[in-house]
Design a protein around this nucleic acid. Structure first.
Lengths: 334, 334
DNA sequence: CTGAAAGCGCTTACAG
DNA sequence: CTGAAAGCGCTTACAG
């Protein structure tokens, strides 16, 4: 960008009749500068339309003001509005703190892939991870001193800073709700159980059965991957093995919609024949007919919490992992 | 990030027994370096686990490898999966070209706001804009020499580089489809007509009427803002003024869902009493019951095209604005 | 409260 | 094909 040569500190300093050090102090809010001279600097900045060069500033100070937001998945993940909302929450809080979000959507496959390389290039002050499948890279980065926040409970039990929704509690509440509505045979469609959140929702489901005094048949558990299509497949599988199934907890709204589509194709109705509960309380749950009963998680708040944990870390403040509560939103489907 | 001191060119140069200039050449793919010495450098890089410091590189070269992706709206815009997909498309193509996406979701209110300030700080090599409401800032940045791509047709008719969906053609096809299904009284729910795409879809709607030999009543045009709620409001308004309305083209899927919800609340059914067509062919259209007939636009392709135009510009290649075709996907709702 | 000076870690004409 | 050297535009001890 060899645009019309932008002014530098040298120019501001000369115009204001002070040293570059003083210019730097004023622009960085160091209040040890005498008000009169500070004013002269500000006037010069104003007059010349000066904008500090962030790259030079970053090199000299070691702080870039950039936080990587890494989504460990491929792009199709964005079809689910979930991620957009979390990202938006992160972005807002970071911006309010004069930090920018560097978005990377890519499988974090190896500790040696493109993302890994990038995060070690000194261009970011920290990294926030979403949908993490493996934490090998995160471990390495943490060891190197890079501030890290994980959204979702990390796969292994190291002491990473993370923020998560109460997936277990949500799964428990969803399943108990189905029982309370009179369901006898409640199945579950899980997410990719390689992800901790999917596993925790499943655990919640099991816990609901346990509180009822027994364990569910293994064949009442069908695996999906959070996609609409996988919800359809899983529902067909459940109906195959349990024609008398009368309740389904789908681990996200998209799969719940897939399940409902299959149920209706077979001429059965929701909630009369089979009751369905989703998870996320996304726009889809709200706009669906019948309205989808769903476990609400505040996704924007999730992103905001992640960003706040990052900011605290950067400020050297001791932080703790954080679990956000869920809330069951009852609509017509169950 | 004062992590375990990372090696620098000085260390690599010494290890490989060459000058720093040679290290730089090898790492930047300058093939004028003798293969033997290049090999020694590569070995040293490998051995020391060297990662180039991007900030220093950016300061010296003037290229940061960062492209700003600016969404001129507030965060709620991400509830609509549309933006996530476009962003994902951009991100993928940029990454493939070793560029990173700096995501900024914020109203670009003034030429003097936070976004404006940032884009002039030298931290990005270019900027891609979405959902632009005003192009005052864009004009100024372009004048300063910053490469720019706009997604969606720019508000004013300067010669910006942009990529857009054929909104006019989509609106035309949607409306004609409703007529071809026997509708007599077709209304439209528009998006925020301050946005060019919303205006163009409306123009397509008008054109369909014109091709039928007349103009629609003004009261068949109800304004929304692309949100679910606004779709509901607009539909109520249409039903108020035209109880006999039998077709509605909603300018996006979310508003179409809002319209359908209102229609059903009133005891009417879709498509029997009123046929509805949406726009976007989002996941919502696909998962809705009845399936929503919708104008499909390839959002990921839109993002990819925007990124490619940016890359071409950075390479100094002459580029032209690009319009992507739409396709009507017929389902049950019309 | 202030300035001179060194330094951040690369890149790039320039000269050979 | 290669190296010495200047430079990118800031920040930050250090000394006063």
């Amino acid at each position: 960008m060899a645009q019309t040569a932008r002014p530098t500190y040298a120019v501001i300093a000369k115009t204001a009749g002070v040293s570059e050090a003083t210019v730097s102090r004023v622009l960085n809010g160091d209040d040890s500068v005498h008000p009169d001279r500070a004013k002269r600097v500000q006037d010069a900045v104003e007059k010349l339309g000066y904008k500090k060069n962030r790259v030079a500033s970053a090199l000299a100070s070691g702080r870039t003001g950039l936080i990587a937001v890494v989504i460990d998945d491929d792009l199709s993940i964005f079809q689910d509005p979930f991620w957009g909302s979390v990202t938006a929450g992160v972005s807002r809080v970071l911006m309010e703190n004069e930090l920018q979000s560097l978005l990377m959507v890519s499988p974090v496959d190896s500790v040696d892939g493109a993302v890994a390389h990038y995060l070690q290039s000194g261009e970011v002050d920290g990294a926030i991870f979403f949908a993490l499948h493996s934490d090998a890279l995160v471990k390495r980065l943490a060891k190197q001193g890079l501030p890290i926040v994980i959204t979702g409970t990390p796969p292994s039990n190291d002491d990473f800073i993370f923020v998560d929704t109460d997936n277990f509690g949500g799964g428990l509440a969803a399943t108990k709700h189905l029982f309370s509505r009179g369901c006898q045979k409640v199945g579950i469609i899980t997410g990719d159980t390689g992800l901790t959140d999917a596993k925790q929702r499943l655990d919640g489901y099991h816990q609901a059965y346990r509180e009822g005094g027994h364990l569910p048949s293994k064949t009442l558990v069908a695996n999906g991957d959070y996609s609409f299509e996988s919800g359809k497949r899983a529902m067909r599988q459940l109906l195959d093995s349990h024609p008398g199934i009368d309740g389904v907890f789908a681990s996200n709204d998209l799969m719940a919609m897939g399940a409902i589509a299959v149920i209706q194709e077979l001429g059965k109705t929701v909630p009369e024949h089979i009751k369905v509960v989703g998870f996320d309380d996304s726009l889809i749950a709200q706009t669906a007919r019948p309205g989808l009963t769903s476990v609400r998680q505040d996704v924007v708040a999730l992103g905001e919490a992640a960003a706040n944990l990052m900011i605290a870390q950067l400020a050297g403040i001791e932080v703790e992992p954080k679990i956000l509560p869920t809330e069951l939103v009852v609509r017509e489907s169950a």
